[in-house]
Structures are given as structure tokens and as C-alpha cells.
């Protein structure tokens, strides 16, 4: 297995507060890797560091064999990192179609973009009916689909997803997880941050558990699924540390 993304000894601060303590993790090419943890464990900040939205105080981010620490977000996106942000963050006043095309903003190959639009709509057939609708008027689950489709439109090597199942009904949670698996089958590496550990571990290959800025547990998802410590760690229990 080759690695697509690695974080090495990341230390991050928000003002005087330290968020990450020597955080290291790797994401293998073609994998779904899951970062689990409770509130304020530093999950979302990890995502922001990968995307260049937050700069770590020290440590190295490597993407696709090249250092990517401290690069501005647009450059990181150009290198092949797509994002499904927390709470979707669609462009609410733009149509679904415009949202999807915004996903291909860094690309110039108009013909291939048009093909990808068809391909993505094949993956998310529901969206085909909604192309002209304002994105802000969709339901939460539909918005999540737009957000994922939008990320795919950039033809990323890696998609980062921040709590993709947050705020969705159980039915939609299953659907979204299936879609993530489907995206992954197409060859896209997925790094996702989740609170919903048991569900995320169903589709993930590998997982890390983050607790107040430190990795306290990691391993193949199949192992972690059976590990009683996962629940403790993720609920902030003391035994896990």
C-alpha cells in the first residue's frame, strides 16, 4: 500500500490553546480512512489542516509524495484534494447545476467537465431532476448528495468529508454511507471525520481515534469494530488512555 496523505507530528494552536499534540496519521491510496472522536477532540481542525484552512505550528503534511504544509487552500485543491465541508456549505443561492460546476472550478477541460457531470449524475440520479433548483431549497440529505457530487466534479485524488452523516435521518445516513463506498470503488481515496463510530467503521478500511488532540487508538476498521475500547475512547472514557 502506498500512502496518499500523511500528517507527521502536527502541533496546532488556537491562540494559547493547543489543539493537536504530535498528531500523526497516514491515509493509504484507495482507502477509506476514518477519524473518530467526540466533540472538541480536534477532528475538524485536522480536516482544516489538510485543506490548508488552518496552519499548524509545527509538523509536516505530505500529499501525493510532496510536502503540502502551509500551502494556500486553492493550491491544495488544485493538487487533487476535494472537500465535503461540515454542514454541507452549499452555495445556497446558486442552482444545483451551478454548485456542481463550481466543484470543477480549478479545471479547464470543458469537455471532460461535461462528461463528468453526466457521470456524477449517474451516481446521484436524484440530482438530475433538481439541476435547475436553488441548492438552498433542497432537503438535508439531498444537499449532502450535492456536496459529495460537487467534490467529485474536481476529479480529486482524495476527498475529505467532515461529518457527512451529521443531521441526517437514519435512512439518509445509510444512503450516504453507501454512496461514500461507491465513490471509493471508483478509485477515490476518502478521509472522513465522524462522530458516528459504529456506522463509519462499517465502510472504512482504517480508522484513528482522536481524543483531546492525541491519537489514542488506531488500526484496521475490522479490528476496531470489535474493540471495546473504541466506545470508551470515543465517549471520552478514561480506560482508553
Amino acid at each position: 500500500m502506498t500512502e496518499l496523505l500523511s500528517l507527521e507530528n502536527i502541533n496546532t494552536f488556537y491562540g494559547p490553546v493547543q489543539v493537536h499534540f504530535d498528531l500523526s496519521l497516514t491515509v493509504g491510496r484507495g482507502h477509506i480512512v476514518c477519524l473518530l472522536g467526540g466533540n472538541a477532540s480536534g477532528k475538524s481542525t485536522t480536516m482544516k489542516i489538510i485543506l490548508g484552512l488552518v496552519k499548524p505550528q509545527s509538523g509536516i503534511v505530505r500529499f501525493d509524495g510532496q510536502p503540502a504544509t502551509g500551502l494556500p487552500t486553492p493550491q491544495i485543491v488544485r493538487r487533487g484534494v476535494g472537500s465535503v465541508p461540515e454542514a454541507r456549505r452549499l452555495f445556497g443561492d446558486m442552482s444545483v447545476r451551478e454548485n456542481l460546476l463550481m466543484g470543477a472550478f480549478v479545471r479547464k477541460d470543458q469537455k471532460a467537465i461535461a462528461e463528468d457531470l453526466d457521470r456524477v449524475l449517474g451516481l446521484f440520479p436524484k440530482l438530475a431532476e433538481r439541476l435547475a433548483q436553488r441548492a438552498g431549497t433542497l432537503s438535508g440529505g439531498e444537499q449532502q448528495m450535492v456536496a459529495m457530487a460537487r467534490a467529485l466534479m474536481g476529479r480529486p485524488k482524495l476527498i475529505c468529508m467532515d461529518e457527512p452523516t451529521m443531521g441526517l435521518s437514519p435512512l439518509w445516513v445509510d444512503r450516504v454511507l453507501d454512496l461514500i463506498a461507491a465513490i471509493n470503488k471508483e478509485g477515490v481515496t476518502v478521509f472522513m471525520v465522524e462522530q458516528n463510530a459504529s456506522l463509519a467503521l462499517e465502510i472504512a478500511h482504517h480508522a484513528y481515534v482522536l481524543q483531546t488532540g492525541r491519537i489514542v487508538l488506531q488500526g484496521p476498521a475490522s479490528q476496531l469494530r470489535a474493540d471495546p475500547r473504541i466506545r470508551d475512547a470515543y465517549l471520552g472514557g478514561q480506560e482508553a488512555a
Binding site: L53, T73, P74, F105
Partner: peptide, 20 residues
Amino acid sequence: GWAVRATAQDRDAAQQMGVD
């Protein structure tokens, strides 16, 4: 122009689409 509209609606999300 699209970048301007996207930035106006959600600056962070626009950045994550690669908008400078």
C-alpha cells in the same frame, strides 16, 4: 463572476473549491 458569487455566499466553501 462565478467565483465572486460563490465567495459572497460562502467564503470558506469557495476556497475549498479552489477559488482564490
